[in-house]
């Protein structure tokens, strides 16, 4: 869950229309076009999750983050059968109470609930529970692992640098790689992660 308190705004005096902001937005909230040769930037504030990516990458320093009326990106876990949430988490190799987003403190159970609630691509998952709207780096793969576990496929947005795809997990590493590189202790680490996935569920479900 994340409370959004700032959103992007653009200074058209500085904007050169390079489209970097559009390309780095994880939720496709920005569209840059040209009208009569002049850049036009449309920021959809119904979509913007206040992640700062555009502000941080704009080469012309044309974007700033402005305070907005606070609103929550959250999915109510209690609306869903917890066994269903647990099953989806387990399929993605997570414990429901595991943290998957360090920046927003979003846990696996909420990501699972967001998908059960209809989120079907990464941008929708971000908007549904805030996961991925902080650093924009570390929870990238958990989001994709959850979508895959739920059987959701999506086309990568061509006008974006985001969501290139799911990569290998320790459960995918081939026997040949393990044999050739024993020093990396793949099986031991897989067992450690499995023990977390299989840990008991606390009765105090959130």
């Amino acid at each position: 869950m994340k409370t959004v308190r700032v959103q992007a705004q653009v200074d058209m005096e500085l904007c050169q229309g390079c489209k970097t902001c559009q390309m780095v937005c994880p939720v496709y909230a920005i569209e840059v076009s040209r009208v009569d040769g002049k850049p036009q930037v449309n920021i959809d504030h119904d979509l913007c999750v206040g992640c700062w990516n555009c502000e941080q990458r704009c080469p012309d320093h044309a974007i700033s983050m402005a305070p907005c009326e606070p609103f929550d990106l959250a999915t109510d876990v209690s609306k869903f059968d917890y066994d269903e949430i647990h099953a989806l988490c387990r399929k993605a190799h997570f414990h429901p109470k595991q943290l998957v987003c360090y920046c927003t403190a979003t846990r696996a159970e909420e990501v699972a609930a967001a998908i059960l609630d209809g989120a079907s691509d990464p941008a929708e998952v971000v908007r549904a529970c805030g996961v991925g709207s902080g650093c924009g780096i570390e929870c990238n793969q958990p989001i994709l692992r959850f979508l895959e576990a739920a059987g959701k496929t999506f086309e990568r947005h061509k006008l974006s640098y985001q969501w290139y795809g799911r990569t290998a997990t320790v459960w995918d590493v081939s026997d040949q790689v393990k044999k050739e590189h024993p020093g990396f202790r793949f099986d031991s680490d897989r067992d450690l992660l499995n023990s977390v996935v299989e840990a008991p569920i606390d009765n105090t479900k959130s």
Binding site: T167, A168, T169, V170, V177, F184, F186, R190
Partner: peptide, 23 residues
């Protein structure tokens, strides 16, 4: 590396196996 790769290191492989990403 891209965020996908960094997330692979920190989330997908485990605390020691992760070092195989760079290699």
């Amino acid at each position: 590396a891209r965020c996908e790769t960094r997330s692979t290191y920190h989330m997908n492989l485990g605390p020691r196996a992760a070092n195989f990403v760079a290699r």
